[in-house]
Amino acid sequence: MNHTIAPTTPRQRFIQNLAESELFQHYQKAFHTLTSLPLGLEASKEDEHIESIVTRKGVAGVVETQVPVRVGKNTIAVLLTGGVRLQPANADTFAPVAKALLDDGHSAPEIRGAKVHFEHAPIMEPARYEAALAILQSFALQLGESAHRMLFATATHEPEAVRNAKTFIHAHLAEPMSLEAVASAVNVSPFHFCKLFKRATGLTFTDFVNRARVEKAKRMLMKPAARITEVAYDVGFQSLSHFNRSFRRIADESPTEFRSRMKHSGPALMAA
């Protein structure tokens, strides 16, 4: 499941960087060693909304599965695996394949040749395949968190103005911030900066700032003594309602729900 098509959109370029990361490369090798299944990573299409695992079965019974990788509410990529059949090769399971080929006008020798390929397709027990998908679901969550962090890190391949803008944004998160002010700080016209920033990061300036503020808020909310209202203003939101709306849109949960989940899933992480 290796895709060699050159990336053309910001999302595709970003997902290519994610696929080349040490985290994905290490997991891809470990997953194949454990399950003998291939594992690929592909940017999701802009008009495609995959909310949960999707498994499709071809006429020969070969299954392929997509596991969504999400940043907040947005599916940015899919993990791809499969290429196996979940049923044994016998006359009953080949019958639908033979019928489909016959209906398409294939000859008897062609159908016999298809039967040879059918019998040699790798087979996996359904329970084992489901277990592999459960492992991928957990990895998809981890990969989504890594992707979120990568969005806000400065990258050497990015234009200097974008790198400088990210540094400026992180240093001034608590302050009111406009596109014009950041563009001026990095010596680029607002119009050019808007296009440059979106092309390099895949995000609008406003969305990037809000996501950076929410990311910082998450770290602050890990401290039990921090009050949600104070956190909202400390990361630059001008109202609690705006903070709550942005947090839920980006993190898919409220600040209170995030803090509660962190407390119950890992008390040791909640540093005083």
Rank of each mutant, 00 (worst) to 15 (best):
S254T: 15
K115L: 12
S184T: 13
H192R: 10
N210S: 13
F208T: 00
E64Y: 13
Y233M: 02
R70G: 00
P109W: 08
P109Y: 09
T256M: 12
L203C: 03
F205Y: 15
A212V: 12
A19V: 07
S146K: 05
A185H: 08
M177K: 07
R149K: 14
T65F: 09
A30M: 10
E158N: 05
G58R: 08
A251M: 12
P255F: 09
A127W: 01
A212Q: 04
F237N: 03
G113P: 03
L179D: 05
K115A: 11
N210M: 09
I169G: 00
M220N: 05
V69T: 01
T8W: 05
R128E: 15
T204I: 12
T75F: 02
A19C: 10
K216I: 03
S260C: 00
F94I: 02
F118R: 05
E64V: 09
E160D: 15
Q87T: 15
A95H: 13
G82P: 01
I228V: 15
L101G: 03
I15P: 02
Q238P: 01
T204A: 11
R219N: 13
A171R: 14
M1R: 04
I111L: 04
F168E: 03
I5F: 06
P255S: 08
S184Q: 14
S239E: 03
Q238A: 10
L136E: 01
A95Q: 14
T167D: 02
F152R: 10
L79V: 06
S239Q: 07
V62S: 04
A132K: 04
P126S: 02
N17W: 03
P7T: 09
S36M: 09
S138Y: 10
T206H: 12
E130I: 02
A89W: 06
T33I: 04
P96C: 13
R213M: 08
I250L: 09
F139W: 05
H120E: 14
Q66M: 13
A140N: 00
H106Y: 15
